[in-house]
Amino acid sequence: MKKFIPYILILIALGIFAGYYMYNKPHAETQGAKADITINPADLLAAFELDETKANAMYLDKIIEVKGKVKSINEVEQGGSISLDTGNEISSVICEFEHAASIDGVKVGDEVIIKGFCSGKLMDVILVRCSL
C-alpha cells in the first residue's frame, strides 16, 4: 500500500492543477482567430429576419466575419460598440468590443472588417467579443 502513496499524491496534484487551469482558462478570442463564416451585414440580418430559429442554429457562438460601413459608434457602459450599416433604417449589426481602445480612430462611414461571436438578434444582430 505504502508504495502507491507517491503516485496518489501526484494524481491529486495533477487534479488540483487541472482544476485550477480549467477555472482560469482564457476566453476564446476573435483576434487572430479564423472566421467560421464570412458574410456581409445585410445578408446576416436577412438570414435572421427570414428564419430566426434556422439562423440561430447556423450562426450562434460562431466566429462571424463581417465587412461593412460604420453606421454609428455607440456609447456603452464598458468597452465600445459599433453599428454596421445593413441598408435597413431600423436594424443593423451591432459589434461589441471589450475595450473602448480597440475602436479608437474608427469613424462613421469607415469601411471595416470585424470578427465577433454571434449572440443572436433582438432588433439588430449582435456580435460580441469583437476584434477589428
Binding site: 477555472y23 457562438d61 461571436f117
Partner: peptide
C-alpha cells in the same frame, strides 16, 4: 440576449 452576457472567467 443571454449569449450577450460577458463574464470575467470563460
Amino acid at each position: 440576449l443571454i449569449k450577450g452576457f460577458q463574464f470575467e472567467k470563460a
